[in-house]
Design a protein around this nucleic acid. Structure first.
Lengths: 234, 234
DNA sequence: TGGATGACCAGATTCGAAATTTGGTCATCC
DNA sequence: GGATGACCAAATTTCGAATCTGGTCATCCA
């Protein structure tokens, strides 16, 4: 309701917050959460340490916002692609794109892989659940499956819960990378294709959806993405 | 060629080795590799510590044999099922069964998940590769895919390497368990079914193989398993 | 006068050396 | 001559001192 920060402070405030987040991001990737100090973040952002605390209550909330932003942006890119091309709303395409996003962006990759090397204490919530859950990924996935099913893009022979679980497991497997096969040399785009093919074969309906249906489905997928993005930015 | 141990020592020797391995297994699961001491193993096996070293050169080689044995046995169960029913040689069925084996047996699960909590220093080879690779899982998987392709049980439209990678990633994903979905309540058998369905849809040919073909394929799968098992027991 | 700052503090983390433990050996025993 | 456990060097753990870091707030400008 109240835009407390931007309202209570001069316009320089917003840009400053961005500088702080940028510095935090750099340091997070270079050193990992644990080694990053608030002092160093402030130094890089060329402000005093106390100033950081004018924007966020604690170090954790700062980084929590950073993670939310990264995911927010990733979902934004995904939404843009769907807006441009309805076919990108197909389950296999969406999962493929999520994989690529998370492969390219080290922060989101860390989030989805639960990489405690980078995320440190952020990797799991106080309750012991992976961050990715906390960030509402499950809710989004469940909503997407619902949409895909209603529009006939996904089989309805299996229970939705099973399909959700399957997508999550397969996606996680591809992001983690298989253990037995030394596959470092396989290019990300190619892995994404293999993932897409797997999802398509396992879950999509065999009939090619007609353009009108696709467009309607795309609208609902976009709505789901919008809702998820909304949740991410408090 | 030479059965060194059982030949050079009294018959009690073999049974004693078994006792040591059993003790080591118990302790491994209870405490994890790092906390297990050779002294404690000897105590549980009711022998002197020095005696352990009459059987294995180091603590590591003892546990390496333990891991090899567990995998050896798991593959043995798999082979038995295929011998009993050729249909169990189908890709989806084999992967399904491997998953179940590795879910039920905490040791093999630790191996495939690279669980350093249990495996400690054993989780990765000195070269930094996961144990599962060292144990020849990749070679076996590659051989199986080759067999499945030649017998027409698996599509040949995609390169074998891609199929191997896909199986590994999907299997790993299901063993690790998805991160976003809190799926502890899904029963192992049900997860195995979902995995089987995924593999079947993504990789198997759509035509139902006839019984004769299946039986021949089963023979080759059994041969591959036999070879892998042979490699495991030096 | 209110936003920015960095000295400051308590609690957490790291360090390091002493104390303990443990993998591996081998003289001794049966 | 096979089995053993005392023994040793090396690794690990302990634990208190020293250092560091998240967070505060009195002070300082603009």
């Amino acid at each position: 309701m109240t835009l407390d920060r931007s309202a209570a402070a001069p316009p320089a405030d917003h840009a400053r917050a961005e500088r702080i987040l940028a510095a935090a991001r750099e340091l997070l990737l270079a050193w990992g959460y644990k080694r990053v100090t608030v002092d160093e973040i402030a130094r890089r952002a060329r402000i005093g340490k106390g100033t950081v605390y004018l924007h966020w209550k604690t170090k954790q909330t700062l980084f929590a916002e950073l993670l939310r932003r990264e995911l927010h942006e990733a979902l934004g890119v995904l939404a843009a692609e769907i807006r441009e091309n309805s076919a990108a709303a197909l389950p296999s395409k969406v999962v493929r794109e999520v994989f690529l996003q998370q492969t390219r962006n080290p922060v989101t990759r860390a989030i989805h892989a639960g990489d405690s090397e980078i995320l440190g204490a952020l990797a799991v919530t106080p309750a012991g659940r992976p961050v990715i859950q906390e960030l509402g990924f499950h809710t989004l996935l469940a909503r997407l499956v619902e949409v895909w099913r209603t529009h006939g893009l996904m089989t309805v022979t299996a229970p939705a819960a099973d399909q959700i679980y399957t997508i999550d497991a397969v996606l996680t497997g591809f992001i983690t990378g298989g253990l037995a096969v030394p596959g470092e040399d396989v290019r990300p785009d190619h892995r994404a294709d293999l993932l897409g093919h797997t999802i398509k074969a396992a879950l999509e309906t065999s009939v090619t959806p007609d353009e009108a249906v696709l467009r309607e489905a795309a609208q609902d997928v976009l709505a789901a993405l919008g809702a998820a993005r909304g949740t991410l930015m408090t």
